[in-house]
Design a protein around this nucleic acid. Structure first.
Length: 597
RNA sequence: GCCGACGUAGCUCAAUCGGCGGAGCAUCCGCCUUGUAAGCGGAGGGUUGUGGGUUCGAUUCCCACCGUCGGCUCCA
């Protein structure tokens, strides 16, 4: 998938094609359901949608019928005619379209556009007509349906969507479709969707025997099987080593704490819906932690702190539990129990700039080690309901901005998008399929230091309030793992593979030699196993291929005689025979460089 | 949480109109002893997600619940 920036997209012909195709779809829906109420239908990243209030739920068959009708409509030449109209005309025209009337009201009264976003231009109502279909719309559209290739259009699925994205308002039916310039582009997009499906971590974690979920034991709770657990250990060991080198200290904190902690932190006031119900311990309410911060603060406050010991950088792979609503759980990407690669940086105002740059660099190095190269940064600044001194906000935001500049990252500013307690940087990576995932978050907190009265004694002998920065680089281990699975389609870099090499004896008489080589490889620190099953060699190779084992080492009479292994890669490349020593050197090199094969 | 679809063996899927639940793969047991992606034969495996209801009879129809999937909302 090509990636184009949002501004260029909105200017593009493709954008107009999709917008116009959405109108044609709405025309087909209105033809089939004359009583339908239409809402909005914008182009989106890979297509378009349109929301409808319909007399009955749509079926897959309806979708096919609508698509067929759209294609007929597209074969007729219809012009998309723009017209500016007065409020009275608009109200007349859309008299039986309550959603449109609401939009008209908003455009006139609030100066927003038809998607509810602030518009710079003075309120002006406009419509587009094509055939019998008229829609309140500012455009832009194609000139005529001739510009839309019916063979490059497809309706994809139906889903529920709240009117204006508001869960208090009616649930509409949203039809998603896609449209491209050429049929070939549509085919490529459909192939891409198929690739997305093939790489779905929910399928791969089962097929590769890495993790499972158990609906009967609790949804949204991940079970790490031995192969997955070995990968997780490898990730965590690397993470710890890096943190040690990176100037962090470690903390381990409890999984539960008394209610006052969460009252004091404000979580019970603002976050209770996402917390599990308390448990009674000796008549006291204890909550399972949804975050690690209050515990790290307990450590900080366990003694008087001097400016001389700052900055403190305390890292913890902290497992937290959050009650996520049932409809939002999604494999490893959204779970109810997960381990954050958390850390808190506690420092003086003088140190903050250097600390922010340091943590940003650290994060980029960490993500690069896992094979991610394409980063975008998002800076979220002070919202309206912020707490904390404006001067501190300014300093924090500036330090974040300068760090991004220093690293030369592309970034966007989400003005007012910060949490009420502090500004933040989020880092997104692009995966092998061009999809964007948020991983790192570097987040100031002006709230907790106040609430827990965190202080340090400064050079002047007076008490000062430290800066606190929360940060998670990988985010959650579970989610990061899911992203790795999809990014590599299960064919992980060798250093991460649970099984790095598989010995494949051709006949039973070669098992003894295979086991000897296995032992030799294990001595050299390689994760190797012998397939001693009664299957034929072809079946063993197939099995190892499906498990995406990077090295298949075939051993038969020749290899046993020469003390070699015949090396096959999961790429299907056959390297031929080499001595066991040569193979070990080769594999260790790939592991040490964290090579992406 | 909301809208819709779905839930049959470990996995992928069958089962006419409501009439004794099957197949492939996987597993186990044999045989075969193999040269770069599936050798052959046999066996075991199910309260059809759970609980109600309708019916002489329910995988099939109805209701509730649980879960999964596609979205929406949410993600201080």
């Amino acid at each position: 998938m090509e990636n184009i920036n949002p501004e260029a997209y909105q200017e593009s012909k493709l954008y107009r094609i999709r917008h116009s195709t959405a109108h044609v779809m709405a025309a087909a829906v209105l033809e089939k359901f004359p009583e339908a109420k239409i809402a909005i239908g914008p182009p989106i990243e890979h297509g378009f949608y349109y929301d409808f209030d319909l007399p009955r739920p749509l079926t897959q068959e309806d979708l096919e019928e609508l698509e067929a009708r759209m294609k007929e409509m597209l074969k007729e030449t219809r012009e998309f005619d723009y017209e500016e109209i007065s409020p009275a005309e608009a109200q007349e025209l859309f008299a039986d379209q309550p959603y449109k009337l609401e939009l008209i009201r908003d455009i006139l009264e609030r100066g927003t556009d038809e998607y509810g976003e602030k518009s710079d231009s003075p309120p002006q109502l406009s419509i587009y007509k094509s055939g019998d279909f008229v829609d309140l719309c500012r455009g832009p559209h194609v000139e005529t349906t001739k510009e839309i290739n019916p063979k490059a259009v497809k309706l994809l699925n139906v889903a529920g969507a709240y009117w204006r994205g508001d869960s208090e308002r009616p649930m509409l039916q949203r039809i998603y479709g896609t449209a491209w310039r050429k049929p070939k582009e549509l085919r490529q997009y459909l192939a891409w969707l198929e690739e997305v499906k093939q790489r779905d971590h929910r399928r791969l974690i089962r097929e590769l025997d890495l993790l499972s979920f158990h609906e009967d034991a609790g949804p949204g709770l991940a079970y790490w099987h031995p192969r997955g657990a070995l990968m997780r250990k490898t990730i965590e060991d690397f993470w710890r080593d890096q943190h040690l080198e990176g100037g962090y200290d470690f903390a381990y904190t409890p999984h539960i704490g008394k209610a006052w902690l969460w009252e004091k932190s404000g979580h019970l006031a603002y976050y209770k819906d996402s917390m599990y119900a308390p448990m009674d311990v000796d008549g006291q309410d204890y909550y399972i932690k949804p975050m690690n911060c209050p515990f790290h603060i307990m450590i900080y406050n366990s003694q008087l702190r001097s400016y001389r010991e700052l900055p403190l950088r305390w890292a913890e792979l902290g497992t937290v539990y959050r009650y996520e609503k049932s409809g939002v759980l999604h494999g490893l990407m959204r779970v109810r129990g997960f381990t954050q690669d958390d850390a808190h940086i506690i420092c003086t105002p003088e140190q903050i700039e250097a600390e922010v740059l340091r943590v940003l660099r650290f994060s980029l190095a960490m993500l690069r080690a896992f094979g991610f190269e394409d980063f975008q940064a998002y800076l979220s600044t002070r919202p309206g309901d912020a707490i904390g001194e404006p001067a501190r906000w300014d300093q924090a935001q500036e330090s974040l901005r300068r760090a991004i500049d220093a690293e030369g990252l592309d970034y966007q500013v989400d003005v007012g998008g910060g949490a009420f307690y502090g500004p933040k940087i989020d880092l997104h990576i692009k995966d092998a399929l061009g999809r964007s995932w948020q991983l790192t978050t570097i987040q100031f907190d002006f709230n907790l230091p106040e609430r827990f009265d965190m202080t340090y004694v400064g050079e002047d002998g007076a008490e000062h309030r430290p800066y606190v920065v929360h940060r998670a680089l990988l985010g959650s281990i579970e989610r990061f793992f899911g992203i790795l699975v999809e990014h590599y389609a299960g064919a992980f870099p060798i250093w991460l593979c649970p099984e790095q090499a598989r010995l494949i004896p051709i006949a039973d008489r070669h098992i003894e030699y295979a086991k000897a080589v296995e032992e030799q490889l294990q001595q050299a620190g390689l994760r190797a196993q012998t397939d001693a099953s009664s299957s034929r060699m072809g079946a063993k190779i197939r099995e190892a291929q499906l498990m995406k084992v990077p090295y298949m080492l075939i051993v038969g009479d020749r290899e046993a005689e020469d003390e070699t292994v015949s090396v096959r890669l999961r790429s299907e490349e056959n390297l031929g025979a080499m001595t066991v020593e040569d193979f070990i050197v080769r594999a260790q090199e790939a592991i040490q460089t964290r090579a992406v094969q």
